[in-house]
């Protein structure tokens, strides 16, 4: 009996020493507010939608000062053009010519832009600006409206341009 008690005590000590278990349980609504990640399959895209025309308005007010007319760049990064140049002697890597996923464009604008006021755009505006940027080179038509369903289906020009260099051990 005594030995049994000692054994039980040892087991109990072992368990408590192996795991602190101090993490606080996160509630689903907390996660929904925290989670900014948009996956390539569209997981995480919020409700709402935006048209090319609405995006042109938002772009002229919030983006053009840094990225130039039609996303041509200057003073900051060029966003458009360069399609078909990646195999040439002078490759031009822009969000439209190089990035493989439209979800990345949405994700990055929503989390990080505009630089002086990140996360200030409404989700409808993020959809709209994404639609506008992709329309400049004809990746989406001029009358496109993007939402959680249509955005992941947009085929970017360089969708198949990446080679995975990571080799897992298993």
């Amino acid at each position: 009996m005594y030995i049994c008690r000692i054994l039980l005590l040892c087991l109990a000590l072992n368990v408590s020493a192996a795991a602190q278990n101090l993490g606080r349980a996160l509630a689903p609504d907390e996660i929904a507010k925290l989670d900014l990640t948009i996956s390539p399959d569209g997981t995480g895209l919020p409700p709402g939608s935006g048209s090319v025309a609405a995006g042109a308005e938002v772009y002229s007010k919030k983006c053009q000062g840094c990225h130039g007319a039609d996303g041509a760049g200057k003073p900051q990064d060029r966003l458009t053009g360069g399609i078909g140049t990646l195999a040439s002697d002078k490759p031009i890597k822009t969000a439209v010519s190089f990035w493989p996923r439209a979800t990345t464009v949405f994700d990055y604008i929503r989390r990080a832009m505009p630089l002086q006021a990140p996360q200030s755009l409404k989700d409808d505006d993020v959809y709209a600006v994404t639609a506008y940027l992709l329309s400049i080179d004809g990746v989406v038509p001029k009358d496109a409206v993007l939402d959680a369903k249509s955005l992941p289906k947009v085929k970017m020009p360089n969708r198949d341009g990446f080679v995975n260099y990571w080799k897992p051990k298993k």
């Binding site: 390539p40 990035w99 990055y108």
Partner: peptide, 13 residues
């Protein structure tokens, strides 16, 4: 924790 990478801006651009 996910089943696939998300192609974030800093792993594509």
């Amino acid at each position: 924790v996910t089943d696939a990478p998300v192609d974030a801006r800093d792993e594509t651009s």
